[in-house]
Amino acid sequence: MHEMTIAQSLINAVRAHAKRRQGERIVAVGLRLGELSGVDAEALKFGFDSLIKGTDLDPLELQIEHAPHRHRCPTCDREFDVIDYDVSCPQCGTSQTESISGDEIEIIYLEVED
């Protein structure tokens, strides 16, 4: 259950943004969560909501966007979603492809009110 740690880091990051956005109120945070991030979205949301409750950031909505595991083929430059762990290139068939995304835990946007 490391979602609590991640929820806390997320809140720290939101606070840093809040400091830079004086005069605005952050009402939602958009998070991109990769398929391979090892983070359970529901547990993260639970931890986030519990940590926010009753603080000056409350109410703050966490909006989670899931990011697929994607690979790139160095031979033909094709980028593709890895489905069912199959990392071979759908175009040329090589299995020597490289991971380009899927493990992100990243804030993408904030929704603010002035």
Binding site: S9, H17, I105, E106, Y109
Partner: peptide
């Protein structure tokens, strides 16, 4: 209410 870009790695 508006949406602003805020790319930040949580970790």
């Amino acid at each position: 209410r508006k949406r602003v870009s805020a790319k930040t790695k949580v970790l």
